[in-house]
Deep mutational scan, measured.
Amino acid sequence: MPEGSASLQLAVGDRVVYPNQGVCRVSAIDVKEVAGQKLTFVTMRREEDGAVVMVPEGKVLAIGVRKVASAE
């Protein structure tokens, strides 16, 4: 991610809310080559049905992904 860009610090195992998809758990953060460029992807699995969603790390905030609020 370019320096100075806002990002959401995620780790494998974090629970997040993905708008219009529901609650997901981060299952992987991997670098993949797409069209000759190396990009970091956040892979999330929906808790409702296990569907897998992959989002480029740089788009996580723009999409509206946020961490699940704690009970505290």
Results as ranks from 00 to 15, higher is better:
P2Y: 07
E3A: 13
S5F: 11
S5M: 13
S5Y: 10
S5Q: 12
A6V: 12
A6S: 12
S7W: 07
S7T: 13
L8Y: 08
L8N: 08
L8I: 10
Q9G: 10
Q9A: 10
A11E: 10
A11T: 09
V12F: 01
G13N: 04
G13E: 01
D14R: 00
R15E: 05
V16R: 00
V16S: 00
V16F: 07
Y18F: 14
P19L: 08
P19A: 09
N20G: 15
N20R: 08
G22N: 03
G22P: 02
G22I: 04
V23T: 07
V23G: 02
C24V: 04
C24G: 02
R25Q: 09
R25T: 14
R25E: 08
V26H: 00
V26A: 00
V26R: 00
S27P: 00
S27N: 05
S27Q: 13
S27C: 01
I29C: 00
I29S: 00
D30E: 14
D30Q: 11
D30L: 13
V31G: 01
V31W: 06
V31E: 07
K32T: 07
K32V: 14
E33A: 05
V34S: 05
G36I: 01
G36N: 05
Q37C: 01
Q37P: 01
Q37I: 15
Q37G: 08
K38N: 07
K38I: 10
F41A: 00
V42L: 07
V42D: 00
T43W: 09
M44H: 02
M44A: 01
M44K: 00
R45S: 08
R46N: 06
E47C: 03
E47I: 07
E48N: 08
G50T: 02
G50Y: 03
A51R: 11
A51H: 09
A51V: 11
V53W: 14
V53L: 15
V53K: 03
P56I: 13
P56G: 05
E57F: 15
E57Y: 15
E57K: 08
K59V: 14
K59Q: 14
K59C: 15
K59G: 09
V60P: 02
A62W: 05
A62K: 08
I63C: 08
G64E: 08
V65H: 05
V65G: 05
V65D: 04
R66K: 14
R66Y: 10
R66S: 10
R66C: 08
R66E: 11
K67S: 06
K67Q: 08
K67I: 15
V68E: 07
V68M: 10
V68A: 07
V68F: 06
A69E: 13
A69K: 11
A69H: 10
S70R: 10
S70P: 13
S70T: 11
A71Q: 13
E72K: 09
